[in-house]
Amino acid sequence: MNPGILVAGISIALLAGLVLVFLVIAPPAPRVSAERRRAPGVDHVSMLSRITQRTTAAVDGVVSKQSRRFFGPEELELAGIRSEPSAFVVMVASAASVMALVGVLLGFASGTSLLWGFLFAVLTPIGAKVMLSMRTARRRDRFADQVDSTVQLMAGGLRAGHGLSRTVGAVASDSASPTSEELSRVVNETRLGRNLADSLAVTAQRMRSDDFEWLAQAVAVNQETGGNLAEVLDQVGKTIRQRNEIRRHVKALSAEGRLSAIVLVCLPVGVFLFLSLVQPTYMSVFFTSIFGMIALGVAVILLILGAIWVSFAVKVKF
Results as ranks from 00 to 15, higher is better:
residue 95 A to M: 11
residue 156 G to I: 11
residue 249 H to E: 12
residue 139 R to H: 05
residue 120 F to C: 00
residue 53 Q to W: 12
residue 121 A to Q: 01
residue 13 A to L: 11
residue 146 Q to W: 01
residue 279 Q to L: 06
residue 10 I to E: 03
residue 23 L to I: 05
residue 92 V to A: 12
residue 154 M to F: 10
residue 236 V to M: 04
residue 253 L to E: 14
residue 22 F to S: 10
residue 14 L to W: 15
residue 288 T to N: 11
residue 48 L to D: 13
residue 122 V to T: 13
residue 240 I to E: 00
residue 166 R to E: 13
residue 274 F to V: 13
residue 207 M to P: 00
residue 302 L to H: 15
residue 121 A to M: 03
residue 251 K to Y: 15
residue 278 V to Y: 15
residue 263 V to H: 04
residue 114 L to D: 07
residue 166 R to W: 08
residue 303 L to P: 00
residue 128 A to G: 01
residue 262 I to W: 00
residue 234 D to C: 05
residue 32 V to K: 09
residue 131 M to R: 15
residue 59 V to W: 02
residue 65 K to R: 14
residue 302 L to M: 11
residue 207 M to L: 10
residue 221 V to Q: 07
residue 111 G to P: 00
residue 286 F to E: 01
residue 59 V to L: 10
residue 8 A to C: 08
residue 271 V to C: 04
residue 114 L to Q: 11
residue 2 N to D: 09
residue 175 S to Y: 12
residue 77 E to A: 13
residue 129 K to S: 07
residue 50 R to Q: 14
residue 10 I to P: 00
residue 215 L to G: 00
residue 60 D to W: 13
residue 192 L to P: 07
residue 13 A to K: 08
residue 46 S to W: 05
residue 308 I to E: 10
residue 80 G to T: 15
residue 1 M to D: 12
residue 159 R to H: 11
residue 310 V to M: 07
residue 133 S to P: 08
residue 153 L to R: 04
residue 61 G to R: 13
residue 278 V to I: 15
residue 308 I to R: 14
residue 267 L to A: 12
residue 180 S to Y: 08
residue 317 K to G: 01
residue 23 L to C: 11
residue 234 D to R: 08
residue 97 S to H: 06
